[in-house]
Design a protein around this nucleic acid. Sequence first.
DNA 1: CGGATTTGTTCAAATTACGAACAATATCGC
DNA 2: GCGATATTGTTCGTAATTTGAACAAATCCG
Lengths: 406, 406
Amino acid sequence: MRKINTRNFVRATRGTAREINRRIILNLVREHQPISRADLARRMRIGRGMVTSLVAELLDDGSIYEGSTAEAPRGRKPMMLFVRTHDRLAIAVDVRFSRTYLMLSDFSGKPIALEEFETIPDPAALVAGLARRIQKLLKGRDAKLKVNGIGLVVPGMVDATSGRILNAPQLGWRDVDVRDALEKATGLSVHVENAPIACALAQMWLGDGDTETPRDFVYLTVGDGVGTGIVVNGEVVRGHDNTAGEFGHVPLNPRGPECLCGARGCLEAYASNLATLSRYLGHEFSPTETRRLLQESGLTILDVIARAHAGEQRALDAIDETATRLGEGLAIVINTLNPSRIYVGGEITELWDRVEPVMRHKIRERALTAKAAETPLVPEPASSYPRLRGATAIVAAPVYAAPQVA
Amino acid sequence: MRKINTRNFVRATRGTAREINRRIILNLVREHQPISRADLARRMRIGRGMVTSLVAELLDDGSIYEGSTAEAPRGRKPMMLFVRTHDRLAIAVDVRFSRTYLMLSDFSGKPIALEEFETIPDPAALVAGLARRIQKLLKGRDAKLKVNGIGLVVPGMVDATSGRILNAPQLGWRDVDVRDALEKATGLSVHVENAPIACALAQMWLGDGDTETPRDFVYLTVGDGVGTGIVVNGEVVRGHDNTAGEFGHVPLNPRGPECLCGARGCLEAYASNLATLSRYLGHEFSPTETRRLLQESGLTILDVIARAHAGEQRALDAIDETATRLGEGLAIVINTLNPSRIYVGGEITELWDRVEPVMRHKIRERALTAKAAETPLVPEPASSYPRLRGATAIVAAPVYAAPQVA
DNA sequence: CGGATTTGTTCAAATTACGAACAATATCGC
DNA sequence: GCGATATTGTTCGTAATTTGAACAAATCCG
């Protein structure tokens, strides 16, 4: 029961029904490939003639392709259909505090080329550098491989419709427009997105290969900060001013450590990588001291994880406390949004066998129903580059998304 | 960019485009009445001929009606259209701990008859009693007034699709099916909904007369418990097991008062009417003691509010603390969902001039952005019967909602 | 009263969904 | 090897629907 937006609706025209059914077929092929025309007709309860005609259009515009025929117990062998992902490309950019990652990948998220370089703090200079690298990246490529656009992910608040970066504290950017500049420099369409939302979009549109992604879930990212991407009813939640999902600043303890946001005892001040590292070094997190402390020690979160793996008690204690706090935060996520699943991304997933039971224990303590207490937690290893996959997803999604109607 | 649900999609048929446009017209009439066919054609960028034909169908099925002609500076005077609400009725039922409210209203939410009686704890007996009262209510009515259905609101978790009440602790109901029984007894279709969600639906579909309701907001109910109804992208958030919106059990203080849910320091244990009343009597909230305490004293929340109005310091202190805690809770709502507005319902709104500034102060302290800190808080007086309006809304909404497609 | 202007209706043409017939393969029983 | 049967995919006529233009109705103005 969605309400129609009478300020900004899309009315149906002669071609709308066809467009809707074509998009449904494209998605059925995507999720059930290989699949035959006759199978599509059965699933959609539609005549095979209609399928032939719609499939012809999808073949024409290159969205799908015909593979070989498949075995059948009797009758004519069906001609199998597949979505064309290997020659539709996206350029994914992940801008982070110290380094920027640049990936060329196909529409399935499979990497073709990957490079990284030091982040240039000035937006204009970064755009110029990016444009140069992108041009070089595409130079030697086969012209047949169509690049559909650029997806750019930043740690911070983004207005996805205007493409403006509203506030990215880690980069020191405020109200910066990189989209238009990068579009002008490369001639490609550019989509900008906030990192946790991008990770959620990667899960939604590219999946993780094995299990089917639900239509309502939360993606928790644990990095220098703690953030979430929220998906409800098959759609991302951005919020009225693009600041939804800041579960990192849920207060856990009014007398807890000071947080970058100015408050005390935020989840992030307990569970971000900086906070974990700081705790390992014997200090509470502090927005003014911690960075200096870490630079002095030269340690990174991966060192703490390695030592925990090796069995060092101090490292294990630091990690356990982080997991406990994450569990408290996730209990709030579960009680307020009741997602069917929670994905967890970040270096901390390397210790999943240790971390998950601790989080689960807290969640069981706090969840309001027995079902909710067992909300599946799914780790996503950092090795799968979730942010870059998310950048790819924002380029690919418009091709597969439901057409806007009504 | 909504993802198509390939397990449960609706394909477009020959009539789909027509259905979509008819529904758009209905909603345009709803929100802009009085409006002429020519105006509709302009707003939809569609030929007037199409509008004539679609409007004829809507006139036929009684969704809208023609009023009188309107003045125009020159040319033929337009014939104005209106939605027909006054002779389409809904029966609204609000089952609460001690009393049950029964309202007959039209589709605009305007009450026609209202009665109340003591809640019968046994579900089957309550249904039988309700059916009897409903029959009596409808007996004397004009047969032309079409009753579209019954909306029933309960304090607790509800599976809106199956109509089962999963858990309503205040009523002591667990996994109870009142829908089928009430449908059988009355011959009317019955919709069951959770109270805070129903309040949100009332705002979304019936509005409050003056201002336009946004497509993303939160409705906070402060009663015996504290709950929220969440609306995102013009659609209600129910959660995977129908337990979304439990912001009442966000922990504010790990060493706070014990809550009914078993945890400590929940928002609800600070800010529900029971907690406020308990605090006024000089005690912390306690799930075991408070009810007895209140029965002994014979006081209700309205007494405390009246004394606060009269300027009694002890009452004011109790209310201020409640407002402070609600502010902390709302800051979490704002940082995690970033709604464009928050409606607040409950007896406490009687003291809005006192309560709002206290909540706002806390929100300003905690909100992550300046814009979010100014998220409008809109009080809804208990006198407008928000839950009963919500029950009406769940009956009326299917008539106006966007058709499900793709 | 005729021209100008706007609203609402009618109608023919262009498109499109739909369904039935048909062509193309393939297996199986004999 | 050959007809019977089953299944896939295509073609094509029919019915339904959008679309745009012409037309009728209503009103004001000079």
